[in-house]
Design a protein around this nucleic acid. Sequence first.
DNA 1: GCAATATGTGAACAACTGTTCATCTGTACC
DNA 2: GGTACAGATGAACAGTTGTTCACATATTGC
Lengths: 119, 119
Amino acid sequence: MEENKDVCEIKFVNEDKVNKVRGLLKPDDIIVRLAETFKVLGDPTRTKIIFALSVEELCVCDIAHLLDMSDSAISHQLRILRNLRLVKCRKEGKMAYYSLDDHHINELFDRGLEHVTER
Amino acid sequence: MEENKDVCEIKFVNEDKVNKVRGLLKPDDIIVRLAETFKVLGDPTRTKIIFALSVEELCVCDIAHLLDMSDSAISHQLRILRNLRLVKCRKEGKMAYYSLDDHHINELFDRGLEHVTER
DNA sequence: GCAATATGTGAACAACTGTTCATCTGTACC
DNA sequence: GGTACAGATGAACAGTTGTTCACATATTGC
């Protein structure tokens, strides 16, 4: 009877609880996109960029000046934020003005700030 | 007059906008903690753990079983989540039951899910 | 005490990340 | 056209991250 894996190979597990959760788990691609979104917000430079853009539309060199970093570094980060649709870009002559892509970002950011500051 | 950096060394910048944002920027330690919180949520394994714990209180081996990963890997991740106060631990005999630390986490998670799924 | 079990933890390793540097594209003005 | 400037991008490098493995700790039941 070495078939009975619930007893032999798997340690004690609350099968009913686990199955309940398993039934509710989101599809893998949703989880991955969600994790990617959080990860992108999880770098201090990008966190600051998002905050800055929640206040004002800014161009690359504005942000670089504000955060005392190179234009190149900021441009790289903005591309990452653009790819995840967290910010959008508006070209005006030589300048590229960036702003938050939608209101969800602002709310998400505020909730995070709440969690960190309230305590 | 090589003091006038606004003209000589810095490229064109919307000084008023930048100064406005600079005045509103949160202190560095707040930003860093905020970024850390997002970063911790930004790994698929931890994202799944947080989701699972938003449904049920679970022990280490429950989660390991659910996600088909080693107990050790889950334990490591849980420590990271514990350190950031995203989950809390309740010992019962040999078992360690984990659950979300407070309601903020759930809300933060739901906002993220909203952003990812709505579109 | 001893064996079994559930979890915790340090070291180590491959994989990934953020910045810098050099270079490229595209626009504005002469 | 040519020069100057804002921004974009690929390669490369150091630093960080997540998992595995081996072992440690702590609790239970004999």
